[in-house]
């Protein structure tokens, strides 16, 4: 485990949890680095295992890209975080959910999609990063243009 990015992620996770346990009003850190257009390149550098143990429920065709419902479930053990990314959005990362051990590996949300694109789900476990992909066809994009 010498990957600097993973080390960094783990440190922020530890920091976040410690801050949150000390003070309830303190929020998790929002890192602008993660919400930049370059995150896909950053991810490509880290080693990710493609898996079929992450199940993504998405419509195949979305009439309107402003609210695409997504449900992610997984049978992987020890999931610490689930991230949802839309490949062709200006800012690909939609959200990162850090789940405690009290929660099932289940997340449901709604996302904006500007155009037909792959939706990538990354699951961070103690053993590494896992990835699953699904394509959604968008008829009307959700970026106001």
């Amino acid at each position: 485990m010498t990957n600097p990015r993973r080390e960094f992620l783990r440190k922020t996770a530890v920091l976040t949890t410690s801050v949150l346990t000390i003070s309830q009003s303190a929020h998790a850190q929002w890192l602008s680095d993660n919400f930049s257009p370059n995150i896909l390149n950053d991810i490509a550098k880290s080693d990710i295992i493609d898996t079929d143990k992450i199940e993504i429920k998405l419509p195949k065709i979305a009439g309107n890209g402003t609210a695409v419902p997504i449900t992610v479930t997984s049978s992987l053990d020890n999931i610490q975080a689930i991230s949802i990314l839309v490949e062709k959005n200006p800012i690909p990362l939609v959200a990162t959910f850090r789940l405690s051990s009290q929660l099932e590996a289940f997340v449901s949300a709604r996302l904006i999609m500007t155009e037909t694109s792959d939706v990538i789900v990354l699951a961070e476990t103690r053993d590494g990063l896992y990835r699953a992909k699904e394509q959604v066809k968008v008829i009307i994009g959700g970026c106001g243009t």
Binding site: A28, Q29, N89, I91, V94, A95, F97, A109, R110
Partner: peptide, 8 residues
């Protein structure tokens, strides 16, 4: 704890 971007 969830960090969200503007694609939500």
């Amino acid at each position: 704890s969830c960090e969200m971007g503007d694609s939500a």
